[in-house]
Structure formats: C-alpha cells, structure tokens
C-alpha cells in the first residue's frame, strides 16, 4: 500500500507526465491521418485481370458487388460502397488477382445513388 500522504494525490505524477508529453490526440479533420498500407478501404480493380467469374459477387457478405451480365463476355461489375463492409472477402475469393482493397477512404456524398461505381464494363 502507498503511504497515506501519497495516496491523497496518487495520480499527480501521471498528471505531470501528461503535461510534459503533451496531447496524444490526432487532430483528424484538420490534420491528415496516416493509414497503414494494409488498411481495408475502397475496392479497386485491375480490369484487365477480371474474367467476370462472379466469385466476388457470390461471396460478398454485404451484397455490395453486383454483376450485370449481357452475354458470354459482356458484363458490368458494379460496386456499391454504401453497402460495403470493407471485409476484404472479394479480394480473398478472386482467383485472378483482379479485385482488391486500397488504403483510402470512401468520401461521403449527399445521395447514396452517386456512390455506386462501375468497376468493369466489358462489351464482349
């Protein structure tokens, strides 16, 4: 047990340390935040690798990917960031190294309809 006098102001050394060290907070909206390289953010695609196999669409737990097929090789892969859970399952499910997650935020928009992105648009 600490001495009675010390326990009257037990945290004092910690307060002093905090004063010396200065704030630990990140001034986020005013200063940029560094995201690690492996951060799971916006879904991006290497369109040349995509074969339209729809494995990513099948495994997406949040139904954020959509495949509109118009023929054997004609299809559109649409990404809906507003539904995306940024879990990275599409990246895992892709056998052709086409779809992946980049380390950037998806900025908000006033209308959720504007968020959708056409990732691949192949016309056969």
């Amino acid at each position: 047990m600490a001495s009675p006098l010390r326990s009257l102001a037990y945290l004092l050394p910690q307060l002093w340390r905090a004063l010396k060290e200065g704030p630990h907070t990140v001034k986020y909206p005013f200063d940029p935040v560094e995201l690690p390289a492996g951060y799971r953010g916006r879904v991006i695609i290497r369109a040349e690798n995509c074969r339209g196999c729809s494995m990513c669409v099948r495994d997406c737990p949040a139904f954020a990917l959509e495949l509109e097929r118009e023929g054997r090789d004609a299809y559109r892969l649409i990404y809906h960031p507003e539904r995306c859970a940024y879990c990275g399952q599409c990246e895992l499910s892709c056998n052709f190294d086409a779809i992946s997650l980049s380390n950037e935020f998806v900025p908000g928009k006033p209308d959720r309809k504007d968020l959708g992105v056409v990732l691949v648009n192949k016309e056969g």
Binding site: P36, G38, R40, A85, Y86, G88, Q89, L92, L101, N103
Partner: peptide, 20 residues
C-alpha cells in the same frame, strides 16, 4: 490496424486459417 487493416473489425479469420 497495421496487422489487419481495421481497428475493430479485423476480418482476419477465414475458414482454414488467417488471412494475414
């Protein structure tokens, strides 16, 4: 976050092991 890419939702586990 450095390890998994997420602060709270790590999405590290997959059936059969880990992703990272």
């Amino acid at each position: 976050e450095d390890l998994s890419g997420g602060r709270v939702s790590h999405a590290v586990n997959i059936i059969g092991g880990v992703r990272i």
